[in-house]
């Protein structure tokens, strides 16, 4: 790792921090600009009660003061404050609870997608235009085009209601099997297609022909030469995909009642639970920024020809 690379990484980190700050600022002000508030409900509270609550949560101060207090708490103490709606719980605990489940779900789904996708993609490339390749391509086309809410409901009807093999709620460990499968099908299909095309591309390269001519064994060519280079597009896709799966599983979490982070996105906004809106937004912004950064840096590791600047 030379100094140029280190400089690049430092630059990327600074840029990431800037991005997160911009996200915080925009979210904070937009959130307060939206009509309504956390103490509004179908049955109205008395004005004195609302006043007392606003004082309790520091919402009686000018908006700019609130902004700087918030920023200070987040930066110096990583303190997101208490949730207004879920009385008595800290935002960070609520997010950590949800994140644990979402991360478990997302990571298993992501690696499942990666492993199966790469294997199927390689098989399809090596058996190009044979029956196996055709079957794989038809299936992956179907999975790529089918939105997760349809896939989720189909699997739910089949395995939970009809066959009764698996529980339909994510509260039990077995209840995570179907959401994992649902979540992984799309990226798996995508990775399969990605691997297949890039593998085909690589297999047609001169250096592979040279290796073959030198009499290198078939498997060594596949694993030693072709595989490594054909994975570059997969890596590009993998980082953002993890962020997407971990954060973007709202629909799947809903279908299977999985206690993940997804539901807080929507519910916190509907409730105008300001600290919760900020908390979820910041954590997810960090996750996405970090994942993008990691995948950018990984390029370099996999392919030294790529210049970082």
């Amino acid at each position: 790792m030379n100094s140029k690379n280190i400089l690049y990484i430092v630059k990327r980190i600074l840029l990431a921090l800037l991005t997160v700050w911009v996200v915080i600022t925009i979210t904070f002000f937009v959130m307060h600009a939206v009509p309504g508030g956390p103490f509004l409900s179908e049955k109205a509270m008395s004005e004195s009660a609302v006043k007392a609550l606003e004082a309790k949560y520091g919402m009686d101060k000018p908006l700019m003061t609130q902004y700087f207090t918030y920023l200070k708490d987040v930066v110096t103490k990583f303190d997101f404050g208490p949730s207004i709606k879920q009385r008595g719980r800290m935002v960070i605990d609520v997010i950590a609870d949800g994140m644990r489940t979402s991360a478990k779900l997302g990571l298993i789904a992501a690696f499942l997608a990666l492993i199966v996708g790469v294997v199927l993609g390689a098989v399809a490339a090596l058996r190009r235009n044979k029956i196996v390749d055709k079957i794989i391509m038809v299936l992956t086309t179907a999975f790529v085009s089918m939105p997760s809410f349809i896939m989720g409901v189909l699997l739910l009807i089949a395995f939970v209601i009809r066959l009764k093999w698996l529980p339909g709620n994510g509260a039990t460990a077995g209840g995570l099997v179907l959401p994992i499968i649902t979540l992984s099908l799309y990226p798996m299909a995508y990775i399969t297609r990605l691997t297949r095309s890039s593998m085909l591309d690589v297999l047609g390269q001169d250096y592979i022909r040279t290796a073959r001519a030198k009499g290198v064994s078939k498997w060594k060519i596949i694993f030693g030469h072709a595989m490594k280079n054909s994975l570059i597009p997969v890596i590009t896709y993998f980082g953002p995909m993890i962020a997407y799966i971990v954060t973007g599983s709202i629909v799947v979490e809903q279908i299977y009642a999985v206690p993940g982070i997804g539901r807080f996105f929507v519910s916190s906004i509907i409730n105008r639970d300001y600290p919760m809106i900020m908390g979820t937004t910041i954590i997810l912004a960090i996750l996405i920024v970090v994942m993008n950064m990691v995948s950018d840096i990984l390029y370099k590791v996999v392919d030294p020809r790529i210049k970082l600047d």
Binding site: I157, V160, I161, K164, P167, G168, N169, I255, Y256, A257
Partner: peptide
């Protein structure tokens, strides 16, 4: 819908 699935099963 999830509730109904769990009730039906």
């Amino acid at each position: 819908n999830n509730m109904l699935a769990n009730f039906k099963n």
